[in-house]
Amino acid sequence: MPEGSASLQLAVGDRVVYPNQGVCRVSAIDVKEVAGQKLTFVTMRREEDGAVVMVPEGKVLAIGVRKVASAE
């Protein structure tokens, strides 16, 4: 991610809310080559049905992904 860009610090195992998809758990953060460029992807699995969603790390905030609020 370019320096100075806002990002959401995620780790494998974090629970997040993905708008219009529901609650997901981060299952992987991997670098993949797409069209000759190396990009970091956040892979999330929906808790409702296990569907897998992959989002480029740089788009996580723009999409509206946020961490699940704690009970505290």
Rank of each mutant, 00 (worst) to 15 (best):
V23M: 10
E47M: 05
Q9G: 08
P56V: 05
V23A: 04
E48C: 06
K32Q: 10
E3F: 07
A51T: 10
R66Q: 15
K32N: 04
R46I: 03
V16Y: 05
M54A: 06
K32V: 13
V16P: 00
N20G: 15
K67D: 08
M54N: 05
D49W: 04
V65A: 05
R25H: 06
M1K: 13
A69E: 14
V16K: 00
E47T: 02
V23W: 05
V68L: 14
L8N: 07
I63G: 08
V60H: 03
V34Y: 08
V68M: 07
C24P: 00
N20H: 10
Q21I: 15
K59S: 13
Q9T: 10
M1V: 12
V52D: 05
D30W: 15
R45C: 02
M54Q: 09
P56C: 05
D30A: 10
L61N: 12
P19W: 07
E3P: 10
E48N: 10
V34L: 07
A35I: 03
G50M: 04
A28E: 07
V34P: 01
V60D: 04
S7Q: 11
L8K: 06
I63H: 12
V55P: 01
F41T: 06
R46D: 02
A11Q: 13
V60Y: 07
R46G: 04
V53F: 15
D14T: 02
Q9P: 09
R45H: 14
M1C: 03
C24A: 02
V60Q: 02
K38P: 07
E48I: 13
R66I: 15
I29H: 01
A69R: 05
S7R: 07
K32W: 14
L61S: 09
K38H: 09
E3G: 11
E33F: 11
A71V: 12
V65P: 03
G4Y: 07
A11S: 11
V26H: 00
R45Q: 13
A11N: 09
V68C: 15
T43W: 11
K38Y: 12
I29D: 00
A71N: 12
V16D: 01
T43I: 15
V34R: 05
T43L: 08
V12G: 01
R66D: 12
Q9V: 11
G50H: 04
A62Q: 09
V42H: 00
V17D: 08
D49V: 03
E47Y: 04
R46N: 06
M44R: 00
V42W: 03
G4H: 13
V42R: 00
V16M: 03
K32S: 07
V23I: 14
E33P: 03
R15P: 02
V52W: 08
T43A: 04
S5F: 08
F41S: 01
D14K: 00
R25Y: 10
V16G: 00
K67G: 06
P2W: 08
E47K: 01
R66H: 15
G36D: 04
G13C: 00
V17C: 00
Q9F: 09
I29V: 06
S70D: 14
L8H: 08
R25L: 13
P19Y: 07
E72P: 11
E57P: 05
A51K: 10
L39P: 01
K59H: 14
G58D: 15
E72L: 10
E3C: 04
G13Q: 01
S7N: 11
T43P: 00
P56R: 04
E48A: 13
V12Q: 01
Q21M: 15
S7P: 12
C24I: 01
S5A: 13
R46K: 05
G58L: 11
G4W: 05
D49P: 02
L39H: 15
S70V: 10
G64S: 05
G4I: 11
A62S: 10
R46M: 04
I63C: 07
N20V: 05
I29N: 00
R66V: 15
F41A: 01
Q37A: 09
P56N: 06
R66F: 15
V23Y: 14
I63T: 08
D14Q: 03
V53A: 04
G50R: 02
A69W: 07
S70Y: 09
E33R: 06
L61K: 10
Q21Y: 15
G58S: 15
C24Q: 00
A11E: 12
V26R: 00
A71F: 10
V16A: 04
V53H: 05
I63A: 13
R45K: 13
V26S: 00
D49A: 02
Q21R: 12
F41P: 00
D49Y: 03
A69T: 14
L10R: 00
R66P: 07
V26N: 00
D49E: 03
R15S: 05
L10P: 01
R15H: 06
R66A: 09
V31L: 07
T43S: 08
D30P: 01
V12K: 02
Q9R: 12
L39F: 11
G64C: 08
S5C: 04
G13R: 00
P2K: 10
V60A: 14
G22N: 03
A51V: 13
D14C: 01
P19A: 07
M44Q: 00
P2D: 11
V42Y: 14
V68W: 06
K59R: 08
A71T: 12
M1Y: 12
V42L: 08
R46C: 12
G36W: 02
C24V: 04
Q21A: 08
C24H: 09
S27H: 08
I29M: 04
V23T: 08
V53S: 05
I29Y: 02
V65N: 03
D14N: 02
V12L: 06
G58N: 15
S5Q: 13
P19G: 10
K38L: 13
P19I: 05
G22T: 05
V17K: 04
R25E: 08
M54R: 09
E33Y: 10
E47A: 03
D49T: 06
V53T: 07
D30E: 14
Q9N: 11
I29A: 01
V55D: 03
N20K: 08
D30I: 14
A51I: 09
Q37V: 12
V31K: 06
A51C: 05
Q37N: 09
V17T: 07
G50T: 02
G36V: 01
V34H: 07
D14A: 01
R25W: 09
I29C: 00
K59L: 15
Q37T: 10
E48R: 14
E3K: 07
G64R: 03
M1A: 13
E47N: 01
I63K: 07
R45G: 02
V26Y: 01
L8F: 09
K32M: 14
A69Y: 11
G58T: 14
G22H: 04
V68K: 05
R46E: 01
M44V: 03
F41I: 13
A11F: 12
V16F: 07
L61W: 14
G64T: 06
L39N: 04
G50F: 04
L39A: 06
D30L: 12
E57L: 15
A28M: 07
E47S: 02
I29L: 06
G4P: 12
A62K: 07
N20Y: 09
R15L: 14
Q21V: 15
E72V: 09
N20R: 07
L39C: 00
T40F: 06
G58V: 08
N20L: 09
T40D: 01
V52M: 11
K59E: 15
D30C: 08
V26L: 02
L8M: 10
A51S: 10
Q21S: 08
V52I: 12
P56L: 08
M54V: 14
S27D: 14
Y18D: 03
V12Y: 02
K59W: 15
R45L: 14
R46Q: 02
V68E: 09
P56K: 04
Q9W: 09
V16T: 01
L61T: 09
A28S: 14
A51H: 10
L10G: 02
V55A: 07
F41N: 00
M44E: 00
D49I: 03
L39W: 06
G58Q: 11
E47L: 08
C24L: 11
K32R: 13
E48T: 13
V68R: 02
G64F: 07
G22V: 04
M1G: 12
V16I: 11
A6N: 13
D30R: 09
L10N: 01
L8Q: 08
R46A: 05
T40I: 10
V60N: 02
R66E: 14
P56W: 10
K32A: 07
I29T: 01
V31E: 09
Q9Y: 11
A51Q: 10
D14W: 02
A35L: 11
R25A: 05
A35M: 10
G22R: 03
N20A: 08
M44G: 00
S27W: 14
G64M: 08
K67S: 05
N20C: 02
A6Q: 14
K38W: 12
R66L: 15
M1T: 11
R15I: 13
T40Q: 05
V31P: 01
S7T: 12
G22D: 04
V55L: 15
R25I: 14
V31Q: 08
P56G: 05
D49F: 03
G22W: 04
Y18P: 01
S5L: 10
D30K: 08
K38E: 06
C24G: 01
Q21G: 15
T40A: 07
V17F: 15
L8V: 09
A28C: 01
T40M: 08
G13W: 02
T43D: 00
A28G: 08
E48Q: 11
D49M: 03
D49R: 01
F41R: 01
V12M: 02
V31M: 07
L8R: 05
D14R: 00
V31Y: 08
R15A: 05
A62R: 06
G64I: 07
E47Q: 04
L8T: 08
D30Q: 10
G4R: 06
G58P: 07
M44A: 01
S7D: 12
V53M: 15
V31F: 07
A71S: 12
V23D: 02
L10W: 04
L39R: 07
L10M: 04
S27G: 03
E57Q: 08
L8P: 07
R66G: 08
M44P: 00
S70T: 11
D30S: 13
V34T: 06
K67Y: 13
G22E: 04
G58C: 06
G13V: 02
V42P: 00
V31H: 08
T43F: 12
V52T: 09
L8W: 12
G13E: 01
G64D: 05
G36M: 02
A69S: 13
